[in-house]
Simulated scan of single mutants.
Amino acid sequence: MEKRKSTRKGYVTVYMPEHPRAYCGFVYEHFLVAEKMLGRSLKDNEDVHHLNLNEKDNRSENLLILEHGQHTRLHNFMKRHDLYDVFRNTGDNKYHVRECECCGEYIGTVLSVDGSNKFCNQECYENYLIEKKANRPTKEELESLLKTKNKVEVGKLYGVHRTTINSWLRDYDAM
């Protein structure tokens, strides 16, 4: 059975005294995973970076093998641009980069329940609402469409959910 423990810095270690990088019999688990990924031992000038900055997350898809200088430059860049929280939250699936639904600019957003993270600013949100209202069918067009299509199909025509069709009908006093 494998003997494992965490260090004070949060890294997971595995008891493997025969490993060339072992210290007091323990080697970092992320080193072992990286070596398995590479199919060889890590070189002295190679570091293993945790993409989501969670030192306990040693899944292969979370690890990146870099030369020491590249790893240092990466952390300097992250520090200079204040990106540590972005990467941590990305790992927790809380932070996403997406396009503003109005202007198409890329924005980094923390996921919200109310959808307030779809726009880069209040002006874009207001422009989006104006544009959506302008693309709304008239009462007569909507009633005509609903004679041959269901609300889901009409919603797809206008890029809205079927509940939006219900709201339009209520606005037009057509329900």
Rank of each mutant, 00 (worst) to 15 (best):
M78Q: 13
E18K: 06
P17Q: 10
V48Q: 00
T7Y: 00
G69K: 13
V86N: 06
G159R: 03
M1A: 07
H161T: 15
V27M: 02
G69C: 02
R73M: 09
Y158T: 07
A174V: 14
K56Y: 04
L169C: 05
F31A: 02
E35K: 06
I165T: 05
M78H: 05
R162C: 00
Q122L: 13
R98D: 09
L146V: 02
E18Y: 00
R73I: 03
S144A: 15
C24D: 12
G104M: 11
K79N: 13
L142H: 04
D47C: 14
A174H: 06
D47A: 13
L169E: 03
C102S: 15
N62S: 03
N93K: 15
H161G: 10
L142R: 08
K43D: 01
T138P: 06
F77T: 01
E131K: 12
H81G: 00
S41P: 12
W168F: 02
L157N: 08
K151C: 01
N89W: 02
A174D: 13
M1S: 13
Y15N: 05
S60Q: 15
S6W: 08
R40Q: 12
E29G: 01
D44R: 08
G104P: 04
E140K: 07
Y158V: 02
Q122C: 01
G104C: 01
P137Y: 14
H75Q: 03
D92H: 12
E2Y: 02
H81S: 07
E46L: 13
K149N: 09
S116W: 07
D82T: 09
H81A: 00
